[in-house]
Design a protein around this nucleic acid. Structure first.
Lengths: 108, 108
DNA sequence: TACAATATGTCCTTTATCGTACATATCGCA
DNA sequence: TGCGATATGTACGATAAAGGACATATTGTA
């Protein structure tokens, strides 16, 4: 019954918190943009514009949360992203706040 | 150590998910706009513009997540909001998705 | 009586974001 | 050789949101 709003909420979270989702995925394993796009579109069953994805990845790198190294795989140049310590810390903070919310704590 | 980004993340959640926060507060106890503003500014230690709050409350009522009744308290007209069943269901969906995120599940 | 606090609401200008399109390059296949 | 898939990036016009101001009304206090 509580699934009625699920899709809209998921889309909202993806839209609002795309950078956090990207950090989450890259923390699990190093990935490049195109792979992330495919994964999100498959797992989340939504469309992700690459015109939104690549600027977000570049922004995360500028903010020091991701670092990238260029690799060539079968003639295609890939930018493989890995998460930094700062990125991990940001994620920890984010999850900590989510946990507090679930437990009904006030945010301070 | 993981408190460095906390304030920014809290502000982000308030900004992106103001309506969810309002539902959360009203679910705990019936409240009126001005009280909500004071509570958020005290608990969250951030500024909340009433020019953003009141339209959001009205929107939540239009969407059927809140209902209001006008009361007069010491000469002041208050619009007391209570949460509806639909509002509770929306919150349940939201919390369910947050929980899945915390547990590292894929959103589908 | 003027001001701060309570209480709710809208308007408007600027800012930020969205989606689309443009742009480039390689590879495999028909 | 033309097209779809892989791979990454920017530019721009439209739309949405943010911030501050305007607006009204009551109560208590300086």
């Amino acid at each position: 019954m509580s699934e009625n709003y699920r899709k809209a909420i998921v889309q909202r979270i993806i839209k609002n918190l795309l950078d956090v989702q990207l950090l989450r995925m890259v923390q699990t394993q190093p990935l490049w943009g195109y792979m992330i796009k495919k994964k999100i579109e498959t797992n989340f069953k939504i469309k992700l514009r690459h015109g939104a994805l690549y600027p977000t990845l570049n922004s995360l790198e500028r903010r020091g949360f991701l670092k990238s190294q260029k690799q060539t795989h079968e003639g295609r140049a890939r930018k493989i992203y890995t998460i930094t310590d700062a990125g991990k810390e940001y994620l920890r903070s984010y999850y900590g706040i989510l946990k507090d919310q679930l437990e009904g704590k006030d945010l301070k």
